[in-house]
Design a protein around this nucleic acid. Structure first.
Ligand SMILES: [Mn+2]
Ligand SMILES: [Mn+2]
Ligand SMILES: [Zn+2]
Ligand SMILES: [Zn+2]
Lengths: 138, 138
DNA sequence: ATAAGTATTGCAACAATAGTGCATTAACTG
DNA sequence: CAGTTAATGCACTATTGTTGCAATACTTAT
């Protein structure tokens, strides 16, 4: 069980108060989160600070961004030793249309995609929409 | 070769002047387009009218929306007898990071995705980013 | 310990996209 | 032609994301 400070230091991020709080929030949450969720939770913190905190986390490879098709960027913790690019990861994401939560399916890698002649793939984003496990069994 | 009017009527859309012009523009363009591209092209037309024209086209199944990960929704003509949902289609989309054009790869269907227990898929969006055929051969 | 330099934060402002309310105009129906 | 419905134009709003800059906090060298 690593401390919050250790996690930040391992990713070469200086552990400031705000960064520790944001990291704690991300760690506790099992699904991906948006900036506005953080803004609502830390309602006396500055919007820009939260924005730049997440930006730093993304740049340092601590979290990855997810475009789940809702128009709002989501963020989730990277796996340990994760090799994901800055923009996306190789695993697929699930967006539940009922609870509106976005989940990283880290075990489910994106299958091989074959493209027409001349197209060169650099990055792939695969988002499945539907009903998540929690919502389907309740 | 169908006339523009026929295409609209087949989709139960009344052929107004603006709708015909927008449809013509979409038909001529081989790649997906954004609202701002339409706004720039029809620079004396009202933004809202263009917005609602596209919205009507989407609702009537004439075009489908594409979330290509750029943050700007793109629109492209549906194939004939296309069974695509309102939001997305079953084929994959390619976004070129060089020319910034988004292409429908209508022949390339999204492969079967298996999900963890309890997750129910309703819709899948797969976007590949990279270099398109035109940009890779020039 | 102090001063200088660097990193972080807070505030204000901006831009782009998306969307709504409502009055006006055009088209259609009897 | 009058009455009804549909489409358009204008103004305004909301949200997300982003930047500039001044004020703090933190670090490092004298
Ligand atoms: Mn993920
Ligand atoms: Mn398409
Ligand atoms: Zn759910
Ligand atoms: Zn290209």
């Amino acid at each position: 069980m690593k401390t919050l400070e250790k996690i930040l230091e391992n990713n070469k991020v200086k552990p400031t108060a705000m960064r520790l709080l944001v990291l704690q929030f991300i760690l506790r949450k099992k699904t991906a989160l948006s900036l506005s969720q953080l803004e609502n939770y830390f309602d006396n913190a500055d919007r820009t600070t939260i924005y730049r905190t997440i930006k730093t986390f993304v740049e340092k490879g601590l979290v990855h961004q997810i475009d789940d098709g809702t128009g709002v960027t989501k963020y989730a913790l990277c796996e340990e030793n994760c090799e994901c690019e800055i923009e996306t990861d190789l695993h697929l994401h699930f967006h539940c249309t009922k609870c509106e939560e976005t989940t990283c399916l880290t075990e489910h890698k994106i299958p091989q995609i074959n493209l027409p002649e001349g197209f060169i793939a650099e990055n792939i984003n695969l988002v499945v929409k539907g009903i998540c496990d929690k919502c389907s069994t309740s």
